[in-house]
Structures are given as C-alpha cells and as structure tokens.
C-alpha cells in the first residue's frame, strides 16, 4: 500500500483514538473511586460540545472575534460547565445509590443520558438536526504525497494528548491525586486517614467530566458538526475501551481507546468483507481479548479477600 495513504489511515486513527481515550479515562476515573459506571458519560461529551457551541454563538453575538481567544474561552466554558454537571451527577444521582447494587447506578445514569439527549433535542434551537460547529483553528495543510497533514487536526491531536497527560499528572503527582488514589484503593481506610470522601468523589467526577467537555470541543472542532445523539455510541465505545484496557488504570484507558480506533479503522478498510461489518469485527475482537485477558490488558492490581 502507498505509504502516504497508510500514514493517512494511521493519523486519522490516532485522532479517533484520542477522542475515545479522553472518554475512556473518565470512565476509568469514576470506576476507580466508586466502582460504578457512569453511563451518561457519552452524553456529557455531547453536552460539552453543545455548551461550547452555545458559548461560541454568544461570543459571536457579542462581536468577539479574536480566533485564539474564542477557542480558549469556548473550551474553558465547556470544561467548567461539564465539571459542574459531573459533580452534580455524583452528588445527586450516584452517591445516593451507593448502598444499592452497582448496576443500579448504571440504570440511573443511563436514564440521565437519555434525559440529557432529549433536553438538547427539544430545547436547543432545531436540536433534532445536526448543528454546524465553527472552524476555529487555522486550516493550513501540507501535502506529502497522498498524505494531507492539516494544522487544525494536528493541534487537536496535541491538545487531546496533552489534556490526558495533565489529568494523569494530577492523579499521579499531586496531593489531590494521592487522595483520589487512596479512595480508589480503599475508601474506608482513606476516610480513617482523614480524607473527605465525598469531596474527593465530587472532584474526581468533576475532573473526568471536564475532560469529557474538552473531548466534546475536540469532537466538534474535528468533525465540524455535532448532533444530539452522538453520546450513546461514544459512551459505549468509551466504556468498552476503558474495560478492555483494564478498569481503574488510566494507561489502560488510553491503550483501550487507541486499540478501539485501530480496530474500527482496520474493520472499515482492511477486511475482505463489506465495511459494514466493521462493528461485527471490532466487537468480536473485543470478546476474544476479554477471553484472553479477563480483567483487561492492564489488570487491576487486586487481591482476593476471602
């Protein structure tokens, strides 16, 4: 195959992988502190994209047109709004169900996801239809044979990776991260050590959701279009990536995200059968992977307590 085309596949796959990884990291963080799955996470990404869009339109209405400034304001607005939403979800939907079986959290967040989706569809102007997302980044591009390297996509790739890196740094290297890891490892002991459990949970949900908000902005800037129903599939893929990588591990989530993007790319173009089978292929591989590594590629470091 032509190396330029191959590079193009790889680059597109990387971009897709970054978006998946950003979503997956959220899943894995939430699972870490509370052992629950926040199934509305994909819809939080969607909500983040719509907050960004609304912010952009508001700025546009006010006449603010400095491109760099607009991007930063828009991204911050999405991240902050989603951080708040994430903390609210944790406080009012997830924590109250702590005593119940973990799967009940799944149902309540699933329903929250459909509420978010319907809210955007019904109350965002013309929300049933795809919305154009503005091109806020410079669109210069270089052609290297069959490979088109676009500046905006490159920026998004770098920003996406950097955001994940920062989150990882926060979790690994700060006092806050230490507390998060302590709660993740053993919430009882962490509490005994004087860690405010509820605060840590809320902060973790805020961080994960802010990441989802930025993922929403990256999604919007990359595809230049957002629709109210992108959340469910993003959520499923993000969840799958987090689980394949190994729940609770940030590196696992990143690996899972890129793996999923790779599977989809291969399924679309490299299989001898119709590209429509790409989901069949991707998920069949997931089943095989899970059989091979039942607790994910990077396994949770747990020991059985009998």
């Amino acid at each position: 195959m032509d190396p330029g085309v191959l590079a193009q596949y790889a680059f597109n796959g990387l971009m897709l992988g970054v978006i998946y990884a950003m979503v997956a990291v959220g899943f894995t963080l939430f699972f870490g502190v509370l052992d629950v799955i926040q199934f509305a996470h994909g819809d939080v990404v969607m909500a983040g994209a719509f907050v960004a869009l609304a912010t952009y339109l508001a700025l546009h209405g006010l006449g603010v047109a400095v491109p760099g400034l607009v991007v930063i304001v828009v991204a911050c607005a999405a991240a902050l709004a989603m951080a708040l939403l994430g903390a609210l979800i944790a406080r009012y939907l997830v924590l109250p169900l702590r005593a119940a079986p973990a799967f009940n959290t799944l149902l309540i967040t699933l329903m929250l996801g459909s509420i978010l989706r319907e809210l955007v569809r019904l109350f965002y102007p013309n929300g049933s239809n795809p919305q154009p997302f503005p091109r806020l980044l410079p669109t210069a591009s270089v052609n290297l044979g069959n490979f088109t390297l676009r500046l905006d996509t490159t920026i998004l790739l770098v920003v996406g990776l950097a955001t994940i890196f920062v989150v990882n740094l926060v979790v690994r290297r700060t006092r806050l991260g230490l507390a998060i890891r302590a709660v993740a490892q053993d919430s009882e002991t962490a509490r005994v050590m004087g860690i405010d459990f509820q605060r840590i949970v809320l902060v973790t949900f805020a961080i994960g959701s802010a990441l989802a908000g930025i993922a929403g902005v990256v999604y919007g800037l990359y595809y230049n279009e957002v629709n109210f129903d992108i959340g469910l599939l993003l959520g499923v893929i993000g969840f799958s990536a987090a689980v394949v990588g190994g729940l609770g591990s940030i590196y696992g989530a990143i690996i899972g995200g890129f793996l999923f993007a790779a599977l989809q790319t291969i399924g679309s173009v490299a299989l001898p059968v119709s590209s429509a089978y790409n989901n069949v292929f991707a998920f069949a591989v997931v089943i095989i992977l899970m059989t091979w590594k039942p607790t994910g590629l990077i396994a949770e470091p747990t020991s059985e307590r009998v």
Binding site: I37, V236, V243, F283, A284, I287, M290
Partner: peptide, 21 residues
C-alpha cells in the same frame, strides 16, 4: 473467565455484534 463489568462488556459486545450482523 470474566466478572462484573468485564462480563458486561463481553455481552454488550455480543449484543451489538448480533444486531449489526
């Protein structure tokens, strides 16, 4: 071989695979 959410993923994968197929 799997438990909890890992088993959930296996069945989710199968469910999506089934309807797509």
């Amino acid at each position: 071989r799997t438990r909890g959410y890992y088993a959930a993923l296996v069945t989710i994968a199968f469910g999506i695979l089934f309807s797509t197929f």
